[in-house]
Design a protein around this nucleic acid. Structure first.
Lengths: 242, 242
DNA sequence: ATCAACATACCGACTAGTTGGTATGGTGTC
DNA sequence: GACACCATACCAACTAGTCGGTATGTTGAT
């Protein structure tokens, strides 16, 4: 399996100008030559790109080390910008965390739009295709397939409500993106025990998050794939396809 | 439901003299009057109790704030001991983390011994009873039912292999404690799709860990109970009791 | 039993280094 | 030239870990 979500690259769908008031045409200039191009004024990165690079650096670093252990200096170093740029775009480290959680939602969106399985006619096939897609993602280094908001909420749920709420919003958005297909699948095929669509969507998310933790204990994705396989079997049984 | 695991108390089964070489009869004097008794020389805590109190304080504080955000000073304050005592018993903060992960395994042991459901004759009933028990634990403040090692491994898996391995050992111990009943249940009742005992045990653990994260996103246990209910239904279906 | 000799448990002020955040100055673009 | 964008130097607060010292046992020879 070679399917993989973008990880270290910039967010794939930057449609929404990252929640700033007056941004204007700044988003149009989002090219990010990533220190290689020649035309734009010497080796200098494109002006206005620092914010996105900082968010991407936060995703990368926090998934590896956790939020508290990640320093502002390190995020800046990974992003290739200075501290001045950091505090120009974000009022604090916590403010970056909130923005990065919102950015994570954008980054996950293509999962529900791009892959071939989203074009299938049967909503149950689309749901199962999504599970297979998530299964295929569970490969390579752990820090490349785990969840940024899932990691961060563990450290923030009791100490920083703004971050917690941002993580909740991102996870809720995932579940809500999954719900329509589940609802349609229930309508077409019926489901055992009166299981609800949103409830099942949240269970999918829970199993994924749990699988990530199991993978972290061994630094290996195999144990996570096993759990998601159980999840797929459960869904098949619920829809009497087991 | 009122069943609850011990949380802020000292480890329930201190049988093993906390992995020290020559301890002798010191363990016998483990009384821990918890700052209330009158006999032992004024309000002073019992000698030799600092280590256990520090581990309990680590469990409590790390589950709430995460490992990196928890300071040594705070652990000492919660434990009611000084920094000198801390570094007398542990070479470093990381060394405490490893010891606390081992202590967590001891603390979880009664789950497989004490409750009434462990006395049931049918191993499948014991397994389902354990799930019900875990379900009943999902109540009250999130930091009181979540998993210490699951929380800590998220921050340590890529940066501290000693801590990671200690967390892995604790989770593996849980799965291995669950496996005999699952194996016996398979032998007596059969199971669908050739599901393996250890694989199912790990899935149980994964769902629990995922449920904890979901609970953290909302600071509420309800969403976690829902996922564990899905897990129970899956097990029932696997054993053709759905 | 007694007491020296030793071991363990604990105390709390101190330090070297790190961290999030600030102050201020430069630079390109409209 | 005004403003957004970014760089550099810096700081006050905090953190893990140290260290000299004290208190409370334990042991074994007498």
């Amino acid at each position: 399996m070679l399917i993989r979500m973008p990880t270290n690259e910039s967010p794939p769908i930057p449609s929404k100008p990252p929640r700033r008031a007056a941004r204007g045409a700044a988003a149009a200039a989002r090219i990010v030559p990533s220190a290689g191009g020649g035309a734009p004024s010497r080796g200098r990165a494109a002006r206005g790109s620092a914010r996105d690079k900082l968010i991407a650096a936060a995703h990368q670093t926090v998934r590896r080390k956790g939020y508290a252990a990640t320093t502002v200096d390190e995020i800046c170093a990974v992003a290739g910008v200075t501290k001045g740029a950091f505090f120009h775009h974000f009022a604090s480290k916590d403010a970056l965390a909130v923005a990065a959680a919102e950015g994570w939602t954008e980054r996950a969106r293509p999962m529900f739009e791009l892959p071939p399985h989203t074009k299938l006619g049967d909503p149950l096939d689309r749901l199962l295709g999504h599970i297979d897609f998530r299964l295929a993602m569970l490969d390579g280094p752990v820090e490349d397939f785990t969840c940024f908001v899932g990691t961060m909420v563990q450290e923030a749920y009791a100490t920083n409500d703004a971050i917690r709420a941002a993580c909740e919003a991102s996870i809720t958005a995932y579940c809500e993106a999954l719900t329509p297909d589940i609802e349609a699948a229930i309508a077409r095929h019926g489901i055992s025990h009166g299981v609800g669509a949103m409830s099942l969507a949240r269970h999918v998310q829970a199993v994924l998050q749990g699988a990530f933790i199991m993978a972290k204990t061994t630094n290996d994705a195999a144990i996570a794939r096993d759990s998601v396989t159980h999840l797929k079997r459960y869904i098949l049984m619920l829809f009497s396809r087991g």
